[in-house]
Amino acid sequence: MFEAKLTEGLILKKIVESIKDIVTDVNIDISPSGISLQAMDSSHVALVSLNLSMDGFEHYRADTNMVLGVSIANLAKVMKLADNNDQITLQADQEATHLKIIFENPKTERTTEFNLNLITIDSEHLAIPETEYSSVVTINSGEFSKICKELFSLSETVQITTNTDYVQFSVEGEVGSGQVRLGHNDSEKKEDQTILEVSESVQQQFAIRYLNMFNKASTLSSFTRLCLHQEQPLVVEFKIDNLGVLKYFLAPKISD
């Protein structure tokens, strides 16, 4: 038996909105300690990893480990039934064929229930290797989203360069070439800070199209954390206060 209740249902709505354009059918791993999912996009260029801790739920019960095969596209349709200030409860029995989703608004006495049919996805169990990142950049999530959108109109590819003094996002295309350079900025307004932790410089190229999809999650956190290591995929990380973390991995472009 699995049951989890989130008082601030809006967070779950935002999480589903943040991943629905990247992953399609996923196996959601339910354990007594929390909920997690990992899935690649269809082209195996991007990987989504979500981890939610049981502590972040108003009520959480999972007697055993369970795997719930879910069509994210269908889950996104069901989540549309939730108002922004609904409380959301997820329920599934052992060997369930569906996931029960309940939206409650204590104020308006409105309750919505939906049984989402589960699907069977046989996916080999892959794992994300532990990686030491030689460059970690913490940047305002709105600022990073804006930079990516603006650069995307100039080029499909962005080159990210880190060193101890700045992180640089450069593009070149038929329009011309240029770069946005952000230095370490520990302004007193915390959400405007840019924090650089660089032990080794990195220079890699990425498809901006994916970054724009990842940045859908910027509504979940005021900060985006970029973790880079030469030859390794970029990690774009959004911490979800009191609940967990949503991470996107993006394989770099390699010039032949």
Partner: peptide
């Protein structure tokens, strides 16, 4: 030109 590497070398059964 640049080609896009994939996640397969990174995300694998361990």
């Amino acid at each position: 030109s640049k080609y896009q590497s994939t996640m397969d070398a990174f995300y694998k059964a361990i």
